[in-house]
């Protein structure tokens, strides 16, 4: 298998004013030196809680937001060095699906225009045979031809998300980044959309980066996962390996919290910024060493973890 995408020490920081009146600024490291690789045809799940930087990471990978540092190689092309028009032609190979199909579709465009637009823009189709192309795509996303002339407000959330997926696959991309694509949908519809992802992946051999806070979905759909916490990767590896043998205390906590049949008493903590490991305030196996520095990601191809003490006995 060959590598489709590799990300090297990607960084993105935001400056936030401490208060409306002060000139002091806090620096928030939304993405803090994240590296990852995506093999052609495989699915990478990115897991993290809200504010962990997973959406920022997704957007930076596609250069929807320009990273502050690091490199992104897509088919061995360095995206940092590409010119605007080169980037634009490359866009047809990398598409995104957003979380909220209510706001990501243009309310004044019919399905035909929404799905047809990227086809025309990237020269995949002429006006004359646009309709038949869009019809083919509709078939793939499980909608019938009646939907061609519908507006977003005439569709349910699940149908809209199907259209958003249709638009993303229209140009036959090599990579799709899906940012929480099912979390705003109803339970019975979530399963349908996840199955649709699996179908598309099989049929079109598209690589997918699947961002979600829902561990169960990520486990179901991904070949590999990375777990991020406060902008850093704390654990990564083959999905089943990470699930059967989680090493980082944060991953363990996440997996236990979805597995448990009872409610565990969780300590309530305020984690402010501090030196050392970002997870220190919430960690249940912390030691003195964790206060001092930030652990780096170590391990082999199958499983990596960023923790000083994961393998030490209590």
């Amino acid at each position: 298998m060959d590598t489709l995408l590799s990300v090297l020490e990607l960084k993105k920081t935001y400056e936030v004013k401490k208060s409306i009146f002060s000139s002091k600024k806090d620096i928030i490291r939304a993405v803090d030196s994240i590296s990852l690789e995506l093999q052609r045809g495989s699915t990478l799940g990115i897991v993290g809680e809200s504010g962990s930087g997973k959406s920022t990471l997704a957007r930076c990978i596609l250069f929807l937001e320009r990273p502050d540092g690091g490199k992104v190689f897509f088919e061995n092309k360095d995206l940092m060095t590409l010119k605007k028009n080169e980037m634009r032609t490359l866009r047809k190979d990398m598409q995104i699906i957003f979380q909220d199909p209510y706001s990501s579709l243009n309310p004044r465009k019919r399905v035909l225009e929404t799905i047809g637009e990227p086809l025309l823009f990237h020269g995949y189709s002429k006006k004359d045979d646009l309709i038949s192309k869009v019809k083919d795509i509709l078939k793939d996303i499980g909608l019938n031809e009646d939907f061609l002339n519908k507006y977003p407000h005439e569709m349910s959330g699940g149908q809209r998300q199907r259209v958003a997926i249709g638009r993303a696959i229209a140009t036959n991309p090599k990579l799709i980044v899906a940012d929480e694509p099912v979390s705003s949908l109803d339970v019975s519809i979530q399963a349908q959309i996840v199955n649709l992802f699996l179908d598309i992946k099989e049929k079109r051999k598209i690589s997918i980066i699947f961002v979600s806070h829902d561990l169960n979905i990520v486990r179901f759909i991904s070949d590999e996962i990375i777990v991020i916490y406060k902008g850093k990767v704390v654990e990564s590896g083959k999905t089943e390996e990470v699930f059967y043998n989680p090493l980082h205390p944060y991953t363990k906590m996440l997996i236990e919290s979805v597995k448990a049949d009872f409610i565990k008493k969780e300590p309530i903590l305020n984690d402010n910024q501090h030196e050392g490991c970002a997870y220190y305030p919430r960690c249940n196996i912390k030691r003195e060493i964790c206060k001092k520095g930030s652990p780096s990601l170590t391990g082999d191809k199958i499983h990596k973890v960023a923790c000083f003490v994961f393998n030490q006995p209590f």
């Binding site: 809680e49 809200s50 806070h213 561990l215 906590m253 996440l254 919290s257 979805v258 409610i263 565990k264 008493k265 969780e266 300590p267 309530i268 919430r282």
Partner: peptide, 10 residues
């Protein structure tokens, strides 16, 4: 989040 959810539920 999952962790906060567990806190609130407990």
């Amino acid at each position: 989040d999952v962790a906060t959810e567990a806190q609130i539920l407990s």
